[in-house]
Amino acid sequence: DAEELIELVERALKEGREIILLGVRITSEEAGKWFIEWIRRFL
């Protein structure tokens, strides 16, 4: 579910982890915020 995915992304970014989803590397909080917004819009 989308909320679970958002929580995972937020937690990983807070822990300083690198996330790779759909071939996109997300390493900064700014990118994470963009990704979370995208999830909310399309899922």
Results as ranks from 00 to 15, higher is better:
Glu4Asn: 12
Phe35Ile: 10
Arg41Asn: 14
Ala31His: 13
Ile36Gln: 02
Lys33Gln: 10
Arg17Met: 11
Ile26Phe: 05
Glu18Asn: 08
Arg17Trp: 11
Ile20Asn: 04
Ile19Ser: 00
Leu13Thr: 04
Glu4Cys: 12
Arg11Trp: 10
Glu15Ile: 07
Phe35Ser: 01
Leu8His: 03
Leu5Trp: 10
Arg40Leu: 12
Asp1Leu: 15
Arg25Ile: 10
Glu29Ile: 13
Arg17Lys: 11
Leu5Thr: 02
Phe42Gln: 10
Gly32Ala: 13
Leu22Glu: 01
Phe42Met: 11
Glu29Asn: 11
Glu4Val: 14
Asp1His: 15
Phe42Val: 11
Thr27Glu: 12
Glu29Gln: 13
Arg41Pro: 03
Lys14Glu: 11
Glu7Gly: 12
Glu15Leu: 07
Leu43Thr: 06
Leu43Gly: 04
Leu22Ala: 03
Glu3Ser: 11
Glu3Gly: 09
Trp38Gly: 01
Asp1Glu: 12
Glu29Arg: 10
Leu5Arg: 00
Ile36Asn: 02
Arg11Pro: 02
Ile36His: 02
Glu4Arg: 15
Arg40His: 08
Lys33Ala: 11
Glu7Trp: 13
Ile20Met: 07
Phe35Leu: 09
Glu3Lys: 12
Gly32Pro: 04
Ile20Trp: 06
Leu21Gln: 01
Ile36Glu: 02
Phe42Asp: 01
Lys33Leu: 11
Leu21His: 02
Ile39His: 01
Ser28Ala: 05
Ile39Phe: 06
Trp38Phe: 09
Glu30Gly: 09
Gly16Thr: 03
Arg40Pro: 03
Glu30Trp: 08
Glu4His: 15
Val24Pro: 00
Phe42Pro: 00
Trp38Pro: 00
Ile36Lys: 03
Glu29Trp: 14
Val9Gln: 00
Glu37Thr: 07
Glu29Lys: 11
Ala31Gly: 11
Ile39Asn: 01
Thr27Cys: 15
Leu22Ile: 08
Lys33Arg: 14
Val24Asp: 01
Arg25Lys: 12
Arg40Asp: 08
Gly32Thr: 05
Trp34Pro: 01
Lys33Val: 13
Glu30Asp: 12
Ile26Pro: 06
Glu3Cys: 15
Glu29Ser: 07
Gly32Met: 09
Ile19Trp: 04
Glu18Ser: 07
Arg17Cys: 11
Leu43Cys: 14
Ile26Val: 04
Arg41Glu: 13
Gly16Trp: 08
Arg41Lys: 14
Leu5Gly: 00
Arg17Leu: 09
Leu5Lys: 00
Phe35Pro: 00
Trp34Ser: 13
Val24Lys: 02
Ala12Glu: 03
Arg25Pro: 08
Ala31Trp: 11
Glu37Ser: 06
Glu37Ile: 11
Leu22Arg: 03
Trp34Phe: 07
Leu43Tyr: 14
Lys14Phe: 08
Ile39Tyr: 07
Trp38Ser: 02
Leu5His: 00
Ile39Ala: 01
Ile19Met: 03
Arg11Thr: 12
Ser28Cys: 09
Glu37Phe: 08
Lys14His: 08
Glu30Ser: 09
Leu8Ser: 02
Ile20Thr: 14
Arg11Asp: 07
Arg40Gly: 04
Ile19Asn: 02
Glu3Trp: 14
Glu7Thr: 12
Ile36Phe: 04
Val24Ser: 00
Trp34Val: 10
Trp38Ile: 04
Ile26Arg: 03
Gly16Ser: 05
Ser28Asn: 14
Asp1Ala: 14
Gly23Lys: 05
Glu29His: 10
Glu30Cys: 15
Glu7Asp: 11
Ile20Phe: 05
Arg17Asn: 06
Trp34Tyr: 10
Glu7Cys: 12
Arg17Gly: 06
Asp1Thr: 15
Arg17Ala: 09
Gly23Thr: 07
Asp1Met: 15
Arg25Gln: 12
Val9His: 00
Ile20Tyr: 07
Glu3Asn: 14
Val24Trp: 13
Glu37Tyr: 09
Glu30Gln: 13
Glu10Met: 11
Ile39Thr: 01
Lys33Glu: 07
Thr27His: 13
Gly32Phe: 10
Ala12Pro: 03
Phe42Lys: 07
Thr27Gly: 12
Glu15Ser: 05
Glu3His: 13
Ser28Asp: 13
Glu7Ile: 10
Val9Leu: 07
Arg25Val: 13
Ile26Glu: 08
Glu10Thr: 11
Glu4Ala: 14
Glu15Pro: 02
Ile19Gly: 01
Ile20Asp: 02
Ala2Phe: 15
Arg11Glu: 09
Glu30His: 10
Phe35Gly: 00
Glu7Leu: 12
Ala2Trp: 15
Glu37Arg: 04
Leu13Asn: 01
Ala12Val: 05
Trp34Leu: 13
Gly23Cys: 07
Ile6Gln: 03
Glu7Tyr: 11
Ile36Arg: 03
Glu15Cys: 15
Phe42Thr: 09
Glu18Ile: 10
Glu4Asp: 09
Glu10Gln: 13
Leu8Trp: 10
Arg41Ala: 12
Glu18Tyr: 08
Ile39Lys: 00
Trp34Ile: 11
Leu21Pro: 00
Glu30Pro: 07
Ile6Gly: 04
Ile26Ala: 03
Glu30Leu: 11
Arg11Ser: 10
Ile36Trp: 06
Glu3Arg: 14
Ser28Arg: 04
Glu37Asp: 11
Leu22Thr: 01
Leu5Glu: 00
Arg11Met: 12
Val9Ser: 00
Glu29Pro: 14
Lys14Met: 10
Arg40Phe: 09
Ile39Ser: 02
Glu15Lys: 03
Trp34Arg: 15
Arg25Asp: 04
Gly23Glu: 05
Arg40Met: 13
Arg11Tyr: 06
Leu8Thr: 04
Ile6Tyr: 05
Arg41Leu: 14
Gly23Met: 10
Val9Pro: 00
Glu37Gln: 08
Val9Arg: 00
Arg40Tyr: 08
Val9Phe: 04
Lys33Met: 09
Leu8Glu: 07
Gly23Asp: 05
Glu3Met: 12
Val24Gly: 02
Leu13His: 01
Leu8Arg: 06
Glu37Asn: 08
Leu13Asp: 01
Glu4Met: 14
Ile6Asp: 01
Leu21Gly: 01
Gly16Ile: 09
Gly32Asp: 03
Arg41Met: 15
Gly23Trp: 14
Ser28Gly: 10
Glu37Cys: 01
Leu22Gln: 02
Leu8Asp: 01
Ser28His: 06
Ser28Gln: 02
Lys14Tyr: 07
Ala31Lys: 13
Glu30Ile: 07
Gly16Asn: 10
Glu37His: 05
Ile39Pro: 01
Leu21Trp: 03
Leu21Arg: 00
Ala12Ile: 06
Leu13Ile: 13
Asp1Gly: 13
Leu5Asp: 00
Glu4Leu: 13
Ile39Asp: 01
Thr27Ala: 14
Glu10Cys: 14
Thr27Asn: 15
Glu18Thr: 12
Ile19Tyr: 02
Glu10Trp: 14
Leu5Ile: 08
Glu15Trp: 08
Val24His: 10
Trp38Thr: 03
Ile6Trp: 10
Ile6Thr: 03
Val24Asn: 03
Glu7Phe: 09
Ala12Trp: 09
Phe35Asp: 01
Asp1Trp: 15
Val9Tyr: 01
Lys14Ala: 13
Phe35Trp: 04
Ile19His: 00
Asp1Ser: 15
Ile6Asn: 02
Leu8Pro: 00
Arg40Val: 09
Val9Asn: 00
Ser28Glu: 04
Trp34Glu: 12
Ala12Phe: 04
Glu30Tyr: 08
Glu4Tyr: 15
Glu7Val: 10
Leu8Tyr: 07
Gly16Ala: 11
Gly23Asn: 06
Val9Ala: 04
Leu22Lys: 02
Arg40Ala: 10
Gly16Asp: 02
Leu22Tyr: 07
Leu5Ala: 02
Leu5Ser: 01
Glu3Thr: 11
Asp1Arg: 15
Ala12Arg: 01
Glu37Trp: 08
Ile36Thr: 03
Arg41Cys: 15
Glu30Phe: 08
Thr27Ser: 11
Glu18Ala: 08
Thr27Val: 12
Val24Phe: 15
Glu30Met: 10
Arg25Glu: 10
Ala31Met: 14
Glu29Leu: 12
Ala31Thr: 15
Phe35Gln: 01
Leu43Val: 09
Arg25Leu: 13
Ser28Pro: 03
Glu3Ala: 14
Trp38Asp: 00
Thr27Tyr: 11
Arg40Lys: 12
Glu37Pro: 00
Arg17Thr: 09
Gly16Met: 09
Glu10Ser: 06
Thr27Leu: 11
Glu30Arg: 12
Glu4Trp: 14
Glu7Asn: 13
Glu15Thr: 05
Glu3Pro: 06
Leu13Phe: 04
Phe35Glu: 01
Arg25Tyr: 12
Ala12Thr: 04
Leu43Arg: 02
Arg41Asp: 08
Gly16Leu: 06
Ala31Arg: 11
Leu13Pro: 01
Arg11Val: 08
Ala31Gln: 15
Leu8Lys: 05
Glu4Ile: 14
Glu15Gly: 03
Leu43Met: 13
Thr27Arg: 05
Gly16Pro: 03
Ser28Trp: 07
Glu18Trp: 08
Ala2Val: 13
Arg41Ile: 15
Gly23Arg: 05
Glu37Leu: 10
Trp34Gly: 06
Glu18Asp: 06
Ile39Arg: 00
Thr27Phe: 14
Lys33Thr: 06
Glu18Met: 07
Ala12Met: 05
Leu21Asp: 00
Ala12Gln: 02
Gly32Tyr: 08
Ala2Pro: 13
Ser28Met: 03
Glu10Arg: 10
Glu15Asp: 12
Ala12His: 04
Ala2Met: 14
Glu29Cys: 04
Ile26Cys: 14
Glu10Ala: 06
Ala31Asn: 10
Glu15Asn: 06
Leu13Cys: 15
Trp34Cys: 07
